[in-house]
Nucleic acid binder design. Sequence first.
DNA 1: TTTATTTACTTAACCGATTAAGTAACACGG
DNA 2: CCGTGTTACTTAATCGGTTAAGTAAATAAA
Lengths: 337, 337
Amino acid sequence: MENVTIRMLAERLQLSTATISKALNNSHEISEETRQRVLALAAELNYVPNPYASSLRKKASNTIAVVIPEVADSFFAEAINGIEAVAQEKGYHVLIYLSHENSQKEQTILKDFQSGRVDGVLISVTTETTAAGLEQLVRDKPVVFFDRVCEEVKAAKITTDDAAAAYRATNHLIAGGCRRIGLLSASRQLSISNKRAEGFQQALLDHQLPLLPNAITYCTNDSAANHQLLKTAFLENNYDGIIATTEKLSTAVYEVCEALQWRIPDDLQVIGFSNLSTARFLHPSLTTITQPAFEMGKAAATLLFRALKSNNFPLQQQQEVIPSSLIARNSTLAKDK
Amino acid sequence: MENVTIRMLAERLQLSTATISKALNNSHEISEETRQRVLALAAELNYVPNPYASSLRKKASNTIAVVIPEVADSFFAEAINGIEAVAQEKGYHVLIYLSHENSQKEQTILKDFQSGRVDGVLISVTTETTAAGLEQLVRDKPVVFFDRVCEEVKAAKITTDDAAAAYRATNHLIAGGCRRIGLLSASRQLSISNKRAEGFQQALLDHQLPLLPNAITYCTNDSAANHQLLKTAFLENNYDGIIATTEKLSTAVYEVCEALQWRIPDDLQVIGFSNLSTARFLHPSLTTITQPAFEMGKAAATLLFRALKSNNFPLQQQQEVIPSSLIARNSTLAKDK
DNA sequence: TTTATTTACTTAACCGATTAAGTAACACGG
DNA sequence: CCGTGTTACTTAATCGGTTAAGTAAATAAA
C-alpha cells in the first residue's frame, strides 16, 4: 500500500486538501462534523503526515540538535536523558551529533544547521572550540550552551558553579592535609576548565599555599597519551592531592596510581568531577564533584523550547548556574562536606 | 540575509534552477565550466541546500533513527558512539529516541516512522516489547535490531553470545565454589534475557547442580523496587553467587550487599554484565561479561547502511553474533578465564 | 427587506529542491 | 547534404503539505 497522503483523504471524502489539512490541525474554520469524519478516516487509513512537506512549507522542523563531544561520559549520557525527556514531552525530535572533541568536525556539523534542518541547538563545545565559529550560529537561530559554554559568545548558558566547585574541592583537599595539589585540566581553551583552574588557584591563595610550577596539567583527548602525561606529572611533582576535572581523567588517575603503586588516599588524595553512579563503589570510593547532569539537560532544553515558542523571548540573556555538590568519600581524608 | 536558495543562484548566474541543481549534484549533463561557476557562487553565498525540500522530492531523508530504552547505561552510550561514527562517515543524520522501557512510548515513536522521517531504524527494544508492534515496521523499512532483539520478528539482528556468556559466567561461579547461584533478569519477555537464563540453567544442569526454586529474580525498571526485591531474594535464597544480567543490576547488587553487610566475594560472588570502564576499580573489582558495545553499534549501523545503499540486499536474513568476554576480577574467586 | 457578518468550505500559490521530457546548437558518419 | 547523436542546457511537473485569498450559503443586524 502506498503512503497515505492528505490528497487521498480528500478524494475519499470529496473535500479539498485544504479542508483536510485544516481539520487535522484543528482549525476553527472546519465544522465539528467534518473534522470528525476526517479524523476517523485518517485513523482508519493510518495516516501519518509527511514531516518534510510540512517542514518545507512551515519553515519549522520540530527538531532540535544536540551537539556534544561524546556520549561515553556519564555526564553527557544523563544530560541527553534530560534533554530527550523534555523534547518528547513537547513533541520535538532530537538529532544527535558528536563532535569527537574536534572543532573542525563541530564546524561542519554547525554549518549544516544553516539549512533549517533544526529549529534550535543545544551544544556543549569541544575542548578546542573558539568563539569564531559560534557567532553566526547564535545569530541564526536559538542556541543554548550547556556545561561547556563559550564565554565570549553572548548566548543562553546553563552551567554549574565551576569555580566554586573547584574552590570547594581544593579546600577539601587542604583540609585533608594536602599541600602539593595538582589539577588535571581538559583544555586551555574551555571556559569551564579555566574557571575550575581559577577556583583552584584562589583556594590555594586563600590558604597561602604556593601554586606549584606544574600544578596544572593540560590533558589531551588521547587516553594513552594522558596516561603518560599523568605519570610524568605525578612523579615530577610528587603531588599529595589531585583534582581531576573530568570523569575520564578521574578514572585515569586510578589507573596511573595503580601503575605507580601509589595508594589512594595515603599517597595521593583524589577528587574527581564525575557523575558515575558507581563512584561510591570504587576502590577506594571516589570523592566527587557531581554535576546535576539530568537537570542541566532538562534546563537547557526547557530554555530552548521557551525561546522556540515565543520569539520575543530574550534567549541570549539567559544564564543559569545549577550548583554541583561535593560528595566526600574515601579517596580523600577530610571529614568536612 | 534571507536563506540562499537554488533559485537565487540561478538568477545570479542567469541559469535555470535545474542546471544549478544538477551542477551541485555533479550531473554529467553540466559542463565543467558551468559547474565551477555554480560551485564558486554557492561557496561565496554560503549556500546550504534545504534538506526538507530535497527529502520531500527524493523520498529519502538521509536520516536514521536510533531507538533505545535509555542512554544512562554505558552499553547504550558506547553503542551510540559506534552508530554515530558510521553515520557521520556516511553523511547520515541520527535521530535519537528513548523509549524509557515503556512499550507504549516505543509504539508511538515507531508509528511516526511511517511518515518517512527516517530511511532506516536501529532499535534495541524495551523489556516489555512484544513482536506485534514490530512486524509492520520491519515490513515498511530497513531495520536492524541490536542487543535487545525480538526473536519472533524476522529481521536483521546484532547480538552477543548471550546464552554462551551466561553459561560461562555460571561456570565461572561454580568453579569458584558457588553452589547456590542466582540470576538477576531484566525481563520475562526479552529474548536476550531468556537466552541468558537458558545458558545459566544449562550450566547448572551440566554440573548437576539443582536450580533453586527462586534462582531467577525478575527485576523491574524501578531501582528502589529492585533494591527491595533483591534484598528479599538474597535473604530468602541465601545465594553464594549471583549473576546480574544488566549493568544497573550489577550496581544494585553492590548496594544491596552493602545494606545487608554481605561481603563480596566471601559471602557472595558477583559477576555482572557491564561495560563500565571503572569495573576494575570497583570495590571489590567486578568480574564482568563485557559486551563489545561500540562494535555492536558499528556493526548494526554498517548493516543498515548497506541495506540503504542497495535495496536488494537481503537485510532481514542478516544475523551477527559478536562475542562478549568474561573478565575475571575480585568479585569472584575462580582463577580461570 | 437589505446589508453585513459569519460559517464552512475551495482554489491556487507556495515552500525549495529534483527530474522527466523537451530543445537548440553542434559534431559526425555515410 | 541529411540523418543521427551528443552536449548543455531549459521547461514544467512534482514531492505533500500549508495558507492567503476567494466564495457561496446561512445568519444576524439594520
